[in-house]
Amino acid sequence: MSEVAGDFDDEDGSGTIKKFMFVNRKAPYGTVYALEGLEVVLITAAFDQDVSMVFMDDGVYQLVKGQNTKAIAMKNFSPTYRALDGYDIEKLYVERDSLEMRGLSESDLLVPVEVLSSAEMQVLMNDQDVVIAF
């Protein structure tokens, strides 16, 4: 992180576009990380930044189909992942090992994602300007 991430407006108004990666590693309802992370992603996208999202470890649970929170009186924010496409956030990456350890596969997920090996994930992370973990 050699530069400050808040450098959005240049004097000519064109702005600086940086590669932002959000790494999501928490399950959706036990803590507030997932929901907060999603909001930050949407806000970042509103600044026309190059945004990608990674789901690994328990973060893959955020994308599981069929969530229904009625009986726990919490907002089911899983449909919001389907809105990401409309925000031009199309780069969603899921780590294969994380899925397999949890007995899940791509067909269990509610949005189209790219499943990557840990090695591919490492290359992708290295390529970012800013990496933020949730």
């Binding site: 690994m56 470890d57 994380s98 490492q122």
Partner: peptide, 17 residues
């Protein structure tokens, strides 16, 4: 906590880390 294990799984796969 499994954070270190996950980090090593990704980081251990080469690259300048």
């Amino acid at each position: 906590n499994t954070t270190l294990a996950s980090c090593l799984r990704v980081v251990g796969k080469g690259g300048d880390n």
